[in-house]
Write a protein that binds this DNA or RNA. Structure first.
Length: 711
RNA sequence: GCGUCCUUAGCUCAGUGGUAGAGCGUCACAUUGACAUUGUGAAGGCCGGAGGUCCGAUCCCUCCAGGACGCACCA
């Protein structure tokens, strides 16, 4: 054996051997007799990385944890399938490319046009995809690349169109004119979950519409008050009881408005004046109040955040400017009673940072409160039941509560987007006719809906679209659905995990998409901060892999990281596990170089009754129990401790004399013991550090592959 | 407002109903050894605070303090 472990050379060579053997593909395992044809299946999909950039430590952690599960499953004889793929990540990718183009060419998407922009985005996505795939392979992930999928490829496009059509036919997808979250910067709608709240200081104005209006109201958005159609008060509020039910007219800065006073439980008596000016067109909450009281809707702001109200003071002005103008006008006429600074959470778009403007728009939605199917249950009820009944178990268990809270607050999901990159809404219009289907209908004059679908719509289908759905006879679908495990970061529990459960409930006959959800934490820097370019604290997994090995990088992300807890990572930590690789290499080298010349490899077994072998069996039981319980950090730590501090420090030391100076049989016994302990350790370490264990295994057992040895 | 998590060695974190562990760091000694080092040993912790349950609590319960996060509200 080489005196030094050449990380890069070995990891590259071993990866090639795995590729050639093809054991990541379960069909090959069965064909080669490695896996029994009727073995219990273990299927998992890789959460598809976005084609927006490169692999980061979060991906590396995900790959490490999942590869441990997969390699362990494969070694325990299961028919193991782990499907790779990438996500087109609609808004994220398009806005990324748009930003680049704006910077380098000073053009926006309308300057380029739909076709040219899409060409550029696809080009970017392709190169990004290639990089990411290369990086995923570098980490040693034993994925079945023959089944690779992309959320925007042909098979998945058919799945998306079929899903949309079926949901529409079931009455679960509808087109409706509702107030939606509009991102003026990205010029698109976004869903509730794509909003990030930022705390800012705002001025709360207490004012009257005009001097004769009897009720003062409080607002931070004076400019929207042109669109007020009601004033809401709490039903038990005696101050305003006399006005409830009346419709009052007011002259607001020169515009005549009609407001009905309504009583609504949602109003807080103690906030402001206890009276809320209701602007149905420009506030989600107000729109809901308006629905309850059948109030009219008056839009006064457009998609670009400009005032459309026919009022000379503000018409055509941006909302912020209009606010100042209205404030000044009211102030000059003595209509403002109070101005105070308050802390306010402003809704912004996650991807573009634009401040959300609620607007009434005609959009496509998924109805979560509508009963459907034979049982007459709603999607919300089914999503809740899937976890409540323990058909799906979430680990760590505490995230179940987070999930339920989200379900309880869930509203209809707006799935249409006004961006160009993504799956086109499979709906065609022809005069008054509307056609929903997977292909354009025959006949002249049909125009497809220009909108695209929320990226999570296609991601939601992932557990079955990767298995060949909508082809109901796809062999993979029958064998591997539902998946055994869904492993992902807790930060996309709502975005993704919940949407997969939703899609499965609706489209797969109420089935669950996977039996278990395992959520890992976020990788942060050693001070607990998020890794980001601007902070300059990014630790790149590829750099770490080249410097210390993919094995060491993987260990650093697994050991000492409890499920669901964030991982604080430092280069020192990776270096520490590189030292462990070196240690393991040297244990093997020492044993190898002391093999008795006349002893053929593996020709003599260790005495199974000796204390060292019994200890090893106990360790194997402990490690197996931890792996079965998804306690990878504990299994890894136990192995680390055993190999370094028992095997190397004590057992090898104790056998040194016998190995070097002992008589023939004594030497053989010493060697046999050490080799047995080493090989067993390699086996158990393999899911954690596949490269070095495979390499050493090949030296002691040439011609065989550790990755398919029996556990 | 509702909820969750965290608080354990100098630092970063595991862990357990029976007076605590890892990595990195510190100190002493040894070693050029299978080990771009490693080994042996040491220092260092009233396991955030206060109550409670228990024979026994760092672990379970309640409260408090500090930190992080999620959700809702945000007129």
């Amino acid at each position: 054996m080489e005196p030094r472990y050449d990380i890069k050379e070995v990891e590259a060579r071993i990866a090639e051997r795995w590729d050639e053997a093809g054991y990541a593909n379960p069909d090959i395992c069965v064909a080669q007799g490695v896996t029994a044809p009727d073995a219990e299946p273990f299927a998992m999909v890789l959460p598809p990385p976005n084609v927006t950039g490169t692999l980061h430590m979060g991906h590396a952690a995900m790959l490490a944890i999942e590869d441990i599960m997969v390699r362990y499953a494969r070694m325990t004889g299961k028919r193991t399938l782990w499907i790779p793929g990438t996500d087109h990540a609609a808004i994220a990718t398009q806005s990324r490319v748009e930003k680049d183009i704006a910077k380098s060419e000073g053009k926006n998407r309308y300057d380029l046009g739909r076709e040219e922009l899409l060409r550029r985005v696809h080009e970017f996505a392709q190169s990004s995809h290639d990089t990411i795939v290369r990086q995923v392979r570098r980490m040693g992930a034993s994925l079945d690349w023959s089944r690779e999928a992309y959320t925007l490829d042909e098979t998945r496009a058919l799945a998306v169109q079929t899903a949309f059509t079926r949901l529409y036919d079931m009455g679960l997808i509808y087109r409706g004119n509702r107030v939606v979250h509009w991102d003026p910067k990205g010029q698109t709608t976004i869903s509730d979950d794509e909003i990030v709240y930022e705390e800012r200081t705002a001025t709360l104005y207490t004012f009257r519409y005009d001097k004769d209006f009897p009720i003062p109201i409080a607002t931070t958005r004076l400019e929207t008050k042109f669109g007020d159609t009601a004033v809401a008060v709490h039903p038990s509020d005696a101050r305003y009881a006399q006005y409830v039910g009346k419709t009052l007219e007011a002259n607001f800065c020169g515009t005549l408005i009609k407001v009905t006073v309504v009583a609504d439980e949602s109003v807080e008596k103690d906030f402001g004046t206890g009276a809320l000016g209701v602007t149905p067109a420009h506030s989600m909450v107000d729109w809901e109040i308006a629905q309850r009281h059948a109030l009219p809707l008056v839009q006064v702001i457009d998609e670009h955040g400009r005032m459309t109200v026919p009022n000379d003071l503000v018409h055509g002005k941006k909302t912020a400017d209009a606010r100042a103008i209205v404030a000044e006008d009211l102030r000059s006429r003595g209509l403002i009673e109070k101005e105070e600074d308050i802390a306010q959470n402003v809704a912004t778009a996650e991807r573009t940072g634009g401040i959300i403007e609620p607007l009434p728009k005609l959009q496509w939605f998924i109805a979560v409160n509508k009963p459907f199917g034979a049982e007459g249950k709603t999607l919300k009820e089914r999503m809740r039941a899937a976890v409540e009944s323990s058909a799906i178990t979430i680990m760590p268990e505490r995230f179940s509560r987070v999930y339920f809270t989200w379900i309880d607050n869930l509203r209809d999901w707006c799935i249409s987007r006004q961006i160009w990159f993504g799956h086109r809404v499979p709906v065609w219009y022809n005069a008054d006719a509307v056609y929903v289907g997977t292909h354009m209908p025959d006949g002249e004059g049909w125009e497809q809906d220009p909108d695209t679908l929320d990226t999570w719509f296609s991601s939601g289908l992932w557990p079955f679209s990767t298995l060949g759905w909508p082809d109901e006879h796809a062999p993979d679908l029958a064998r591997y659905f539902p998946n055994a495990v869904m492993e992902t970061g807790y930060d996309i529990l709502f975005f993704w995990v919940a949407r997969m459960i939703l899609m499965s409930a609706a489209l797969m006959d109420g089935a669950i998409p996977f039996r278990r959800v395992y959520l890992h934490g976020l990788v942060r820097d050693d001070k607990g901060r998020k890794m980001s370019k601007s902070l300059g604290n990014i630790i790149d997994p590829l750099t770490m892999a080249d410097k210390y090995g993919a094995d060491a990088t993987r260990l650093s992300l697994v050991i000492g990281a409890a499920p669901g807890n964030d991982i604080k990572l430092s280069e020192d930590r990776v270096r520490g596990y590189r030292n462990f690789s070196t240690k393991l290499w040297n244990i093997a080298r020492f044993i190898d170089m002391n093999r008795p010349e006349d002893l053929t490899k593996g020709s003599r077994a260790a005495d199974a009754d000796c204390p060292e072998m019994k200890e090893l069996v106990a360790l194997a039981q402990e490690v197996t129990a931890h792996l079965d319980a998804f306690e990878f950090h504990l299994a890894g730590e136990a192995l680390y401790h055993y190999v370094w501090h028992r095997l190397a420090d004590e057992i090898v030391e104790a056998q040194k004399t016998a190995l070097r100076d002992g008589a023939g049989p004594e030497r053989e016994a010493a060697y046999a013991l050490l080799e047995s302990l080493l090989l067993a350790s390699l086996k158990m370490l393999h899911p954690f550090m596949p490269f070095i264990t495979e390499e050493i295994w090949g030296i002691f057992r040439p011609g065989t592959l550790l990755m398919v040895e029996a556990w």
